[in-house]
């Protein structure tokens, strides 16, 4: 037999170093606060953050909502904006990739809006929608739509031209080529956009909530600063990071499943 399954172990040092590094990081952080290297008004220790986490599971004060409600508000806003940006951005990008007229008409709009960071829309959205859900959804929608359009557009553009010529020789119409060849071959790029768009959406959600919100994880961070409660700030940051990572994993799963369906 030429092939044989064997077990290969990494060197001991390489397996221990990551653990040691994390322990060192958390330990230093804890000690910096314990020995007041930084004043307690500037940094909370990991242990204080865990304590606050337990408290915030049930206690709404001083920021007006329990942790789960902050998280739920953020997820709701992020998902609404995200889904809307997929619904608009992907078809727009696909059309722009194949139809000259769509590209010619939509591209200047897109190119003029694109360089404006979504955060810069906050003042206008506060005028237009107030500080409720709609304004934040708008900002997240703007943030998510850019990678959706770009990836779908490039995906269609990268279709193998031989496939298109092959279809033409069989007498396929433009529309048939678009739906039967361009869209399927653009799909991997489109799925790539799902993750990128999500990351953009999540980043900009926090930005939107810092300025215009009364609940949400970004709001929790802002309140922590206003009340000079570093434990609240750090708890908010960690919640944002964990929730974002969690959603990322879910999207990744969905993406893998969908892609596996296509490859088959």
């Amino acid at each position: 037999m030429a092939y044989e399954e064997v077990k290969v172990k990494k060197p001991l040092a390489l397996r221990l170093l990551p653990i040691a590094s994390l322990v060192f990081f958390l330990g230093t952080w804890q000690l910096i606060v314990d020995f007041e290297v930084l004043p307690s008004s500037m940094l909370a220790s990991p242990w204080q953050v865990i304590q606050l986490f337990v408290v915030k599971l049930t206690e709404a004060n001083p920021d007006g909502a329990v942790l789960a409600r902050h998280a739920w508000t953020s997820i709701q806003e992020a998902f609404t904006g995200y889904i809307l940006s997929l619904i608009v951005g992907i078809p727009l990008g696909l059309f722009m990739g194949w139809f000259v007229v769509a590209e010619g008409l939509a591209r200047p709009f897109f190119e003029m809006i694109r360089p404006i960071p979504p955060i810069a829309w906050i003042p206008l959205t506060i005028f237009w929608f107030g500080i409720g859900l709609a304004g934040k959804v708008f900002i997240i929608w703007i943030a998510g739509i850019v990678p959706c359009v770009i990836n779908s557009y490039v995906g269609v553009r990268m279709t193998n031209p031989t496939l298109i010529q092959m279809a033409r020789t069989y007498g396929a119409t433009d529309w048939q080529i678009f739906t039967q060849i361009c869209i399927p071959s653009a799909l991997p790029m489109v799925f790539g956009a799902l993750q990128i768009a999500l990351a953009y959406c999540w980043t900009n959600l926090v930005g939107a909530e810092l300025l215009a919100a009364d609940t949400g994880l970004g709001f929790l961070i802002t309140m922590g600063r206003r009340l000079a409660r570093p434990d609240m700030v750090v708890l908010g940051m960690i919640s944002v990071g964990l929730t974002g990572a969690f959603i990322g994993v879910i999207i990744d799963r969905v993406e893998k499943r969908l892609l596996a369906g296509i490859r088959r």
Partner: peptide, 22 residues
């Protein structure tokens, strides 16, 4: 890599804007 990557992976998912308050 073994020393830096775990800490980096820990901090990576936090959007930079979330750091504004701190």
């Amino acid at each position: 890599n073994a020393v830096v990557k775990p800490v980096f992976d820990l901090l990576k998912p936090m959007p930079p804007i979330a750091w504004i308050s701190i």
